[in-house]
Design a protein around this nucleic acid. Structure first.
Lengths: 153, 153
DNA sequence: TTGATATCATTTGCATACGAATGAATTTCC
DNA sequence: GGAAATTCATTCGTATGCAAATGATATCAA
């Protein structure tokens, strides 16, 4: 190898910040793929409801009637997004809306009887979805992974 | 507590499969939040390009000219999604399109000079984005987390 | 060689997802 | 009490993300 070659490599090593950047090893890229896989598993088991719609119903089951914005906070959706989700659940008769008596800005959301039936019926399927999503890991790995994932979220 | 109360609890315990289902502990929900956080970090550091757009450019830098579909496979996007991403990159002059000479179905995608400059310039920022996303973890935790996440994706 | 299949790309429709702007109602604070 | 700031909801625009249908081209197989 010539002296010029060595110099070239040196210059490259100094300048080429992106020389060994591998997209497929970046956490964001893999996170996106893992999420994709989960959504796909979800769709295979619960075809007529999306994960965000399920999340809204499940959280309403936990907390009972709440404002649309508050529900959005609880399920990590901004106001614009949660509105669309609730609109579609309302169109299907799974939630009902009403105005807060005192604070007239607030739009209260609650499960209908049908919505409550639906979420109770779906929760066992949701458990299976969680299991299938985590199936590539051992029980010990699952514990570790969930602990670290929670730190990132 | 009356006998009726005990009977009621028993019936509830038998029927209520979803009694202790906690949305905020489900892997899908936390995965979605972790992904959201990453996208938010990305947007703060690279405001004028989305993660999918960045992924397309970074992968084109790796593999050079490819068909649109093939690029989609490499960055985990279906045909409909990758089309939109490439259209927007083309509108900004970061990629150029051409027809495959032999197989006239294929739409070849390649970086323009401007696109190559952009991705080289952005890769150092992307490294910082990865770092910031993983900042809540120690180095050892990062190694573990990436190994397990890869298994799920 | 040609008929069946498969592949590549496009389009449409629907569902998140979020920033920014807007309007209505409430709270804060002087 | 009233102006300023905040909160709640809506709307608009843009960008994924995917299923399904369609059209063009290529490949395979009888």
């Amino acid at each position: 190898m010539s002296g010029e070659d060595n110099l070239l490599k040196l210059v490259e090593a100094e300048e080429a910040d992106g020389q060994d950047y591998l997209l497929q090893e970046q956490v964001g890229f893999i996170l996106r793929k893992a999420h994709q896989r989960h959504v796909s598993i979800f769709a295979a088991r619960i075809g007529d409801l999306t994960p965000p719609q399920f999340a809204a119903l499940a959280k309403l089951r936990d907390v009972g009637e709440t404002s649309q914005n508050q529900l959005g906070t609880l399920i990590a959706m901004d106001a614009a997004t949660v509105k669309g989700v609730i609109d579609r659940l309302k169109a299907r008769g799974l939630v009902e809306l009403s105005r807060h008596e005192v604070d007239k800005r607030r739009l209260l959301v609650n499960l209908t009887t049908e919505g409550r039936d639906a979420i109770e019926r779906l929760i066992p399927l949701a458990r299976e979805i969680t299991q299938e999503t985590l199936a590539p890991l051992t029980n010990k790995e699952i514990t570790t992974f969930m602990r670290l994932l929670a730190k990132l979220a």
